[in-house]
Every structure is written in structure tokens, then in C-alpha cells.
Write a protein that binds this DNA or RNA. Structure first.
Length: 329
DNA sequence: AACATGCGCAACCGCTCAAAG
DNA sequence: TCTTTGAGCGGTTGCGCATGT
């Protein structure tokens, strides 16, 4: 009954392939093709499982394979198709001549996932993290939203600290004090030593906001619900470090660090400073009026100002430092 | 210079599905 | 129709190299 096993498991070599083995396999397949993987190692004089031979051939030895770096266009294709089909690597690889599913999978896991995360985009859902948080926040009362924001800070603290340090945001008030900032009194030299990571992030974010020269005042009525005042909002998206350059996601091209590029706008539209971006007329394609003349959902939410999605996910970063300290801790 | 840590890639593992018997 | 296996696929692991301390 059934088929005979593909190989004798006991006499099979495993691990890295040697150049000699590669040569044997390649020359055998060049002469006989890949019709029966069970017979190939036996006939080619290899002590390998047929499955291992197939993988070696399809992932490495095939003459039509590319072995170099992934191009920007290839990366965009991967992201684009991944947003549609998920982890169907073979389907995605089929869109990229010369690339295998293993290549695509490895590249995704080692590079693209991190890139998207660094852009504030969830690599699983392809939505901005802030939108995901905001969706959760819609079910919560304002005090719980503050706790959610705090939890999120904890989750992403390592990444955020890293980004802030790259941007050379100073966590220590005394080296570059901002006049009238209450965090200066909150932090004295002794307490500095005891600051935990999350507090450093809050300070760094607040300083990033305060150091922005063209900051805009935003009318955010929801702030009142958590004790903040709209008058002291000081957020602007260009304060945020941008980990990549020249990368495209969806309709938006993500440009260089802090250059007000569409990447900045996209990130900010999704999370940090929707109000500012809107006022500047710099919304990315996603939120512009659709081709059919109707506004996108996100645009509507922005315009009517009633959506808790945009409001609540803005509150985390738009709060001045004292509010971060007082309301969320 | 030595060690630790992180990263990228190749290979393996285990599962599903279709085909063979 | 059922059992078993090959092929294919996605997830995971382990090795070697690069970088940091």
C-alpha cells in the first residue's frame, strides 16, 4: 500500500551542502531533469534525502535564481502582496522572478518586518500601530485609554528609546532646559538616576515636540477629558525619527529623516499629529479625496473631529510632558 | 585581542493535501 | 474507500559571519 519512502533515513547526510554535492546534483538534474526526487539522490550518487535535494535545488542551485540583494521594487512587491495574501510565501515569490519562497520569507523576517515596525506599521495587519491601539481604545473610557497608552509605551519602549537616541533627543533637562517646562522641576539630578525607560521616553518625546520650531496649536477637545488643555499642544510629526529612506508603502513614498516627506505625513496621519498634517494640507494619498469624489473614512474622521479613533490615538503623543507624567503614570 | 551579541541565511521540521496503490 | 507517501508550504532552528563591548 502507498508509496515507498523517499529515502533511508539512517543513511542520509544532513547539514550544509558541499560544492561537490552541489555539482553532483546540478549535473544530474541538467541531464535528467527533476522528475522523481526520490530517485535523484540515489542516481546522482548523493547520500541525501530526496526532499533535501529538492530544497537545495529549488532554493539555491536553480540557474534562474537571483542571489543578490532585494531591490526596492522587489521589497515593495513583497509588502504589497503580503498585505493581500499574508504569509503565502510561494504566492508572493511567484511575483518575483528568480526569488524563492524561502528567500522572500527570510527577507521578510529579517528586514521588512523591522522596516514596517520602524515605520509604525504593524507587519501583520499592515495598519499603523496607532490605529490598532485606537481601535482598542474605542471600547475604553478615557482613564483606561491612558492606561492603554502607558502599556503601549512599555511594549515599544526599547524601540522608541533607540529611535530617540538616534535623533539625539536629550533625556536630561539640565543640559538643555526648556523655559517654563514643568518637567524641569519634576526631574532633579537625583531622580534622573532613577528614571526608568518609559519615563525617559516620555521626556524624550516631550522634548522632541517642544524643540520643533514650527509647532502648531491644535484644537483637541478630547484633551479636556483627560485633563490636558488644547493650548499647550506642541506636537509635530517631523520631530519623529525616520528609520528608512526612499521606501514606498501603499500610496506613500517614505523619504528621508525629518524632511517632511510623505513618509512623515503618512506616519503622522496614522498616529502622531493628524491635526497638524491636516492643517498643512499635507495628507497623503490615503486620506485625500478618493478618485470617485468621496472622502475616505479616515478623512471624514479627521474632518468632523468626532472620531475617537483619531482623537484617542493622538492623545498619547500630543500631550505635553507634564500631562504625560500626570495623566498616564 | 577576546568575548558577547546580533543578524542573515541555509537547512530542517512538521504539517497539509493530493496521488498512488 | 482507506492507508501511506511524495510534494509543497510555512515555521523554526542552527551555523557562520559581522559588529559591538
Amino acid at each position: 500500500m502507498g508509496r515507498i519512502p523517499c529515502c533511508e533515513k539512517d543513511n542520509v547526510k544532513r547539514g550544509q551542502w558541499t560544492p561537490e554535492e552541489d555539482n553532483k546534483l546540478s549535473s544530474y538534474i541538467a541531464q535528467h531533469g527533476t522528475r522523481n526526487w526520490r530517485l535523484i539522490p540515489k542516481n546522482a550518487g548523493l547520500q541525501r534525502c530526496g526532499k533535501s535535494c529538492r530544497l537545495r535545488w529549488t532554493n539555491y542551485l536553480r540557474p534562474d535564481l537571483k542571489h543578490g540583494q532585494f531591490s526596492d521594487a522587489e521589497e515593495q512587491t513583497i509588502v504589497k502582496y503580503h498585505s493581500v495574501v499574508g504569509n503565502r510565501w510561494s504566492l508572493i515569490a511567484a511575483q518575483l522572478p528568480g526569488r524563492t519562497d524561502n528567500d522572500v520569507k527570510n527577507h521578510w523576517n529579517t528586514k521588512l518586518k523591522k522596516k514596517l515596525s520602524g515605520m509604525g506599521i504593524d507587519p501583520v495587519t499592515h495598519k499603523p500601530f496607532s490605529h490598532l491601539m485606537a481601535e482598542i481604545a474605542t471600547t475604553l473610557a478615557p482613564p483606561q485609554v491612558a492606561h492603554l497608552a502607558e502599556a503601549a509605551l512599555g511594549c515599544f519602549k526599547d524601540e522608541m528609546l533607540h529611535l530617540l537616541m538616534k535623533k539625539r533627543i536629550d533625556f536630561h533637562q539640565h543640559t538643555n532646559p526648556t523655559p517654563g517646562n514643568s518637567t524641569a522641576t519634576y526631574i532633579n539630578s537625583q531622580q534622573e538616576e532613577k528614571l526608568d525607560t518609559v519615563k525617559k521616553i516620555k521626556i524624550g518625546l516631550s522634548r522632541a515636540m517642544q524643540e520643533q520650531p514650527d509647532m502648531l496649536t491644535s484644537n483637541k477637545p478630547w484633551m479636556d477629558t483627560i485633563g490636558a488643555t488644547s493650548a499647550n499642544f506642541t506636537g509635530n510629526c517631523s520631530d519623529f525619527p525616520l528609520p528608512m529612506s526612499g521606501f514606498q508603502y501603499g500610496h506613500s513614498t517614505f523619504g528621508n529623516e525629518g524632511d517632511g516627506s510623505p513618509w512623515s505625513q503618512s506616519l503622522c496621519t496614522g498616529s502622531t499629529c493628524t491635526g497638524a498634517a491636516d492643517q498643512q494640507g499635507q495628507l497623503p494619498d490615503k486620506l485625500e479625496v478618493e478618485e470617485n469624489g468621496e472622502e475616505s473614512e479616515g478623512r471624514k474622521e479627521l474632518r468632523n473631529g468626532s472620531s475617537i479613533i483619531f482623537n484617542s490615538d493622538s492623545l498619547l503623543w500630543d500631550l505635553p510632558s507634564e500631562d504625560l507624567m500626570n495623566q498616564m503614570v
